[in-house]
Write a protein that binds this DNA or RNA. Structure first.
Lengths: 140, 140
DNA sequence: TATAAGCTTAGAGCTAACTCTAAGGTCAAT
DNA sequence: ATTGACCTTAGAGTTAGCTCTAAGCTTATA
């Protein structure tokens, strides 16, 4: 039986975060001491590690809530439900990536155009490009 | 002279957002009517367009505040200041991209491993992978 | 002149995921 | 019995960038 700080150490999450996850309904200590201290079992630890792995994969805490309810009753859920959640997340990640790639490209172009030297910015090509609206490519 | 809704239409930002930018100190209506209505000049429009272009490039409103203070007094600032801000932003974007790429890769692997069919999730390989902590590659 | 559309302000609410604080209880060691 | 480290809870604060509301003016049109 682990106390919350032990679980925190084992998972690399803070005790605060673990309590927060509990408040969100993601995890729960299997036992409590007389005084109300949380005690975690191995099964609790595995559940927290599942949450952590899902966070690393990019899932939101809401997504993880869904995944967890599938996890506790796999018989009542299909693989398709799991792939749907995963697919949806992948689309979000791809969208975000596209946005960032556009920014990255823009920033690289800006940097390539500017001398970056100590002279004053009167003719700075970055400022000029931003003034020109980034050459109307990036309009939405 | 444009009223705020005219400026909103010309820039694609909402009147709410324009007032918010003003509150943040990024923009300002050059004139006000007797009644207090904001009136914008062409120069105001260009400033807002600068802000919008910088947003598209990924700059935060704080960054944009700095860029704007350079913009109004280019003589007192160097190209280096501008490239420093830009470089810093590029590093942030790159870091975020790396994170997203890792997620993307993970999600793609997960999807490739799972049948996604209507059978129950008892042996779903996505669930198994998350249970296994994503094979300890992604630990931090 | 009355109605509707649009303007003003201050300030609250939203999202996501923490992060921290305050006030107090518990526990092991001295 | 007293530290000091840890635990509890409810609830507030943080970040970024909006987004919206309420209450009240103003302006153009019918």
């Amino acid at each position: 039986m682990l106390e919350i700080s032990d679980l925190a150490q084992q998972t690399g999450l803070s005790a605060h975060t673990l309590r927060y996850y509990e408040k969100r309904g993601l995890i729960k200590a299997s036992n409590r001491s007389e005084a109300g201290y949380r005690f975690y079992t191995d099964s609790d630890v595995r559940r927290v590690q599942f949450v952590k792995a899902a966070r690393n994969a990019g899932f939101s805490l809401n997504d993880i809530g869904q995944l967890l309810s599938i996890r506790v009753d796999k018989h009542s859920h299909s693989c398709q439900e799991v792939t749907d959640i995963t697919q949806k997340k992948l689309l979000e990640v791809n969208a975000k990536m596209a946005e960032l790639q556009s920014m990255q490209q823009t920033l690289e172009l800006l940097l390539a155009s500017c001398c970056g030297g100590p002279e004053n910015a009167t003719h700075c090509s970055i400022m000029e490009a931003l003034d020109a609206g980034l050459s109307r490519e990036n309009e939405n």
